[in-house]
Nucleic acid binder design. Sequence first.
DNA 1: GGACCAGTCTCAGGGCAGAT
DNA 2: ATCTGCCCTGAGACTGGTCC
Length: 323
Amino acid sequence: MKALIGTFAALLSEFVAHKISLGFKYENEADELYRFSKFTTTFELAEPILTKELVQAWCAMRPGEGASNNRRRAYPVRQFGIYLTSLGHDAFIASPDARARSYTFIPYIFTTSEVERIFANSDQLCPSRFSTLPLVMPVILRLLYGCGLRISEAVHLQNKHVDLQNGILEIKNSKFGKDRLVAMSESMSQICRLYYQMLHKHSTLDDYFFMKADRKPITPDNVYRRFREILWESGISHGGKGNGPRVHDLRHTFAVHALSRAVNKGTDVYCALPILSTYLGHASVAATEHYVRLTADAFPDIRAALEQYCGHVIPEVKWDETN
DNA sequence: GGACCAGTCTCAGGGCAGAT
DNA sequence: ATCTGCCCTGAGACTGGTCC
């Protein structure tokens, strides 16, 4: 976390420490509060009093700013106001955002042919003396699709978390601080063993499984940029900013393909969903249903099974046959 | 019990600067 | 020239609490 500045520096530091003590990561919020602390230095403030003018100036929509970003900037300052008030300070608390949020996003689900092309092209990356990415990309992309991992979970894997013998990944401190175990297929385990022999001849158990030449973990940024190149090579068009396909869509694809396979094998979808939910690290089946509901139209077999066992998941839509 | 919503966490993507 | 890291914004993913 960057050192907070300005009149509120001490109080903001205490607030962030308070949030962390409650179990939140609060890293991105701390970044926002750092920007807020810089912002406060543009005001003539003799005392650290969170005035209405200061808060409203910070929370005001900037030219061209989206509602989402405005909300993200405002929430931590609102929480800071609540915190100060609880301590008996005089502070203005910003109102929560009343604007409705819409969830109309539909993730991109790769076809099996596209997945195969992505893997094939990731295998063709030119070896480099300076970068481990040509070795890393084929394995990490297969792991994202084969195990449905989040990119952050993959890049933070250390050798001690990868049981190559039994094909088990130990995911530590994932989203909302959750841990879980993820089983790999035998073919995935074999790929990991070959990769480990090539990259980790002189490594320790504390080294990152996907590390750069300087032994630091590769970043999601590294993977994302190479992934865009591979998509291009694979003839999969990118829709521009916000329109994917994204690296995270490999996780969506895993979920949909896994459920599709289960349905085709005659597995009760009511049994398959909780298993998939646990595997993906979701706290509830509802979160997994959300994944599948968004994409079920592309998989009639899943849609039919879901309608039979949990029809409420898929909303009815009206269709005028004269259209 | 389900819908709704606030809050937190994560990923995507552009731009730029410094390193290689 | 290319790669990489960092900053910042945009937006989706996910949890948990509250209200009806």
